[in-house]
């Protein structure tokens, strides 16, 4: 299996804290990697390094073998779907306009965008709501629009930053099921950030655990359960069992 995204000794500090410390990892083509950790553990910074919203101050990130930050970042971002927790929808645009904004930026024809809108909206189950405005949608529907927007250009890579964290438990479960299905159907490389252990173990082909900017362990859910690398991870998993 070839490598889609590679981190090589990546470090990144902000004024108040160190977000990433010497991170090295590979994401394979077609893999769904879940990144998990407490807030402030560096997982969001890791994600933002992939689409150049953050540039590392040590080491390098490569996407399909090309170093991030060197080339046109706008073109790079259009080949990477990006979904954030709040949805980040544009309140003054309809659902269809929101979902096809990437096409508008790229100069796609109106017909092309219209056709694509009905495809991606039906992929996320919102084909009837294209003319609605974001404030007329439920939280789960808004999140689906965010995912549709990320799918517009059929990008080989998708980045999701706690996409379901703000949803109620039932809506979250629905979306997790659907997302798992989407992943199987679409065969994309996905990096998915969450702080929900259950979600991580359910969705991830592999799970990367972060603590204080360091990659502590990266393994399959089964491997993680049978061989937790540190007490921190063991505790992480135990807490989840106890809650059940």
């Amino acid at each position: 299996m070839s490598v889609a995204i590679r981190f090589e000794n990546v470090g990144r500090s902000f004024a108040s804290h160190v977000a990433l410390r010497d991170v090295t990892l590979d994401v394979k083509n077609g893999e769904l990697l879940v990144v998990i950790g407490r807030s402030g553990s560096g997982k969001t910074t890791l994600l933002r390094c992939i689409n150049a919203l953050v540039l590392p101050d040590a080491g390098a990130v490569f996407v399909h073998g090309t170093r991030v930050g060197g080339t046109d970042v706008t073109a790079l971002r259009r080949r990477i779907g990006y979904v954030i927790q709040s949805g980040g929808l544009f309140a003054h645009m309809t659902v269809a306009q929101n979902a096809t904004i990437v096409g508008r930026a790229a100069g796609d024809s109106f017909e092309r965008r219209k056709a694509r809108a009905s495809e991606i909206l039906s992929t996320v189950g919102l084909e009837a709501l294209g003319e609605r405005y974001p404030d007329e949608l439920s939280g789960g529907q808004r999140q689906r629009v965010g995912i549709a927007r990320a799918l517009y250009a059929d990008p080989p890579i998708m980045l999701l930053d706690e996409p379901f964290a703000a949803l109620d438990p039932l809506a979250r479960m629905d979306l997790q099921d659907e997302f798992a299905r989407l992943h199987r159907e679409l065969n994309k490389t996905i990096v998915f950030v969450t702080h929900d252990v259950e979600e991580a173990l359910f969705l991830g082909d592999r799970v990367a655990v972060f603590d204080d900017g360091r990659l502590v362990q990266i393994d399959t859910p089964a491997g993680l359960r049978s061989h937790p690398a540190t007490e921190y991870i063991a505790r992480f998993l135990r807490r989840r069992m106890e809650r059940r």
Partner: peptide, 20 residues
């Protein structure tokens, strides 16, 4: 987060200003 999304999906600074 709206600006973050606009930048993250690949809008240029000028597009972000005019469209968002």
């Amino acid at each position: 987060d709206v600006l973050d999304a606009a930048e993250g999906v690949g809008l240029s600074p000028r597009q972000i200003l005019a469209w968002v």
